[in-house]
Design a protein around this nucleic acid. Structure first.
Lengths: 136, 136
DNA sequence: GTGCTTGCAAATCGTTTGCAATAGC
DNA sequence: GCTATTGCAAACGATTTGCAAGCAC
């Protein structure tokens, strides 16, 4: 079980591994669907019947703090999480609610660490909303 | 009371005026602080003692639907509203929680109405987070 | 009087907290 | 055995809903 891609990713971000953390990180590294806490919980709880929602919350919070996943606030109803740490934009379909990845449209990444009006930027979020190709 | 800037703005967006709607729109047109529902409610309830939070919720939802104000999801804890309908970016200070306006960093506005990968864009949100000049 | 608006109270839902049970070194 | 992690149940807080009362034309 040790020294898998998932295990290594936890170590890389200085997160002490556990069964639950491995399972959640595994899910994040294989499902780039920007899942919510509930989606992750529902997906994993059949295989880990004792898993609790609280642990999913705590674990994702830990991952975010350690820079292992990103939290999206594009959906006003619940937080979504992204295991893809590369800089990219997101598109939310207002009809089906699905979130798509998009390339960053310009060079916002160049603003990371930069000061604008004296405000120091550490995070860049680019969200687009509309109707996706499947819903039109 | 009729034909004020506030009244005219409601008419312009096809929102039927009422005492409460005028008061909330007035607040939005004079306070570009990206207030939450509670901030608006707390600010107005001294002058309108019977005002209810429900009405503030309903009214803001109505305003958003009519394109009279914009809802921001930059703050994960509660929705904020912006009466400035010009296209601009936002900066959230992770320390003090204040939201600053910023110019759009590039030309995302050019994407409005455009299709990217077949997804039709109707809203552009550009959020930056970090530490503001007052908190550093 | 009819239809829309308001506002209370209750319900809902995502998330957090307190704390006891458990697991890992 | 000590410390960190887990998970239940309860609390919390923002938002929504149901519905009765009020207002406007």
């Amino acid at each position: 079980m040790k020294s898998s891609v998932v295990y290594d990713n936890l170590i890389k971000h200085e997160v002490k591994p556990s069964v639950q953390r491995m399972a959640i990180m595994d899910y994040m590294m294989t499902h780039f669907t920007h899942p919510s806490v509930d989606e992750i919980y529902n997906a994993l709880s059949p295989k880990f019947p004792t898993l609790s929602r609280t642990t999913v919350y705590n674990t994702l919070k830990l991952f975010v703090e350690h820079g292992a996943v990103r939290m999206l606030t594009i959906d006003e109803h619940n937080a979504c999480f992204d295991g893809d740490m590369s800089l990219h934009a997101h598109f939310l379909c207002k009809k089906c609610g699905k979130i798509y990845d998009m390339p960053l449209q310009n060079h916002e990444d160049a603003l990371l660490g930069v000061q604008v009006d004296g405000n120091e930027i550490t995070e860049v979020h680019q969200y687009f909303k509309g109707i996706c190709k499947d819903c039109r």
